[in-house]
């Protein structure tokens, strides 16, 4: 156990990072993020942006599934809504990109709240299945609506800031990473207030929560809306990053990817969403590397990459659920506890 640190005020005690060590680590990490683009090559910058986008989306899903206990298999489709919103605004209206991103978030939040409506009547897995239904319907819309470019999808110009085109990972990095950081901070803040507490209460015991003064439907829809807002902004960033949005960009399997990310990372912890999304984004890259080693010996090794990735995703979900249900965040916490007490006790 940690020995209590002496606090001089409640404000100090309620702070997000309450020890000096935590704050220094955070500052160090911030510094690394700031220096990173100047030392990393284009591949690593590309990966960093992708990780950041996935972290933003996974954090949103974590609010809904990890903290509120409402399983959603619609996160990818929600990202699609955000991506299409951005693309349509760019192509048809030409509003500046920060406005587009906010609009993507807002539109998706609205769609998310509508998708959450069945929680009026059903809960648990019924709701999860309703979200599958919603993603099927959203995909249908993407693929058949003239506004979304039907099957061809939409290609869009790069984001522009102060007259510059943001079309290189190096430039986009400075947009994507800070936005993601702000979104993470927002999520962490949420759980310092009554809104976040209400979510957790609903997850842990919804009917008691109601008797204690929490209107269930309102908070479930709020959670859907916030989570979808995150997905929408992440989808918007995705659109600016890849600049083509097609109905195939956000398949159901991607929703499973985000769910896997928060399971592997640790549901119901902010750190979990970050670690999980980063980990799951890097897994295919590591696999690519490993398969690359084998390709001289097995000529079809590269063709096997996609299925191996699918298998590994599944295995990670199953393995973590069975052996480490609290995810990477818990492993990290164990490591920290170990060093905290070391060398007095192990």
């Amino acid at each position: 156990m940690r020995i209590a640190t002496l606090k001089t005020s409640y404000a100090g005690d309620e702070a997000l990072f309450d020890t000096k060590l935590q704050r220094s680590l955070l500052a160090l990490f911030g510094l690394v993020l700031a220096v990173f683009p100047f030392v990393a090559g284009p591949y690593w910058l590309f990966m960093a942006c992708l990780v950041a986008i996935n972290v933003a989306s996974a954090t949103g899903l974590n609010i809904l599934t990890g903290y509120t206990g409402l399983v959603s298999l619609g996160q990818a489709a929600f990202m699609g809504v955000g991506a299409y919103t951005v693309a349509i605004l760019e192509l048809r209206v030409g509003t500046p990109f920060p406005v587009n991103l906010l609009a993507a978030g807002a539109t998706t939040a609205l769609v998310g709240a509508v998708v959450g409506l069945p929680s009026l009547r059903v809960k648990g897995l019924y709701l999860a299945i309703a979200t599958i239904g919603a993603s099927v319907i959203l995909h249908f819309v993407f693929a058949n609506w003239s506004l979304t470019g039907e099957a061809r999808g939409l290609s869009m110009p790069p984001a522009r800031l102060f007259g510059n085109d943001l079309d290189q990972p190096f430039e986009l990095y400075w947009v994507i990473v800070p936005i993601t950081a702000a979104m993470i901070l927002g999520a962490a803040n949420l759980f310092r207030t009554r809104i976040g507490r209400a979510f957790i209460a609903i997850r842990d015991r919804d009917i008691s929560a109601e008797v204690l003064g929490i209107p269930l439907l309102r908070y479930k829809l709020t959670s859907f809306a916030i989570s979808s807002f995150y997905a929408g902004v992440a989808g918007g960033l995705w659109a600016y990053f890849f600049r083509v949005v097609t109905p195939e960009s956000f398949p159901l399997i991607n929703s499973i990817f985000y769910l896997a990310a928060i399971i592997v990372g640790g549901m119901g912890t902010i750190l979990g969403g970050i670690l999980g999304a980063a980990f799951m984004t890097m897994v295919p890259e590591v696999l690519k590397l490993v398969v690359g080693w084998f390709s001289p010996y097995f000529p079809d090794a590269l063709a096997a990459l996609a299925p191996i990735r699918t298998i590994v995703f599944g295995a990670l979900i199953v393995g973590f659920l069975i052996f480490e249900p609290q995810g990477l965040a818990e492993i990290w916490a164990r490591v920290r506890r170990f060093f905290h007490l070391w060398p007095f006790k192990t």
């Binding site: 949420l190 207030t193 009554r194 507490r197 209400a198 929560a209 204690l212 003064g213 929490i214 916030i226």
Partner: peptide, 12 residues
């Protein structure tokens, strides 16, 4: 703290 929920006003 959760007990106080209904009397607080913080919004999203």
């Amino acid at each position: 703290k959760l007990g106080r929920h209904a009397h607080l006003r913080t919004n999203v």
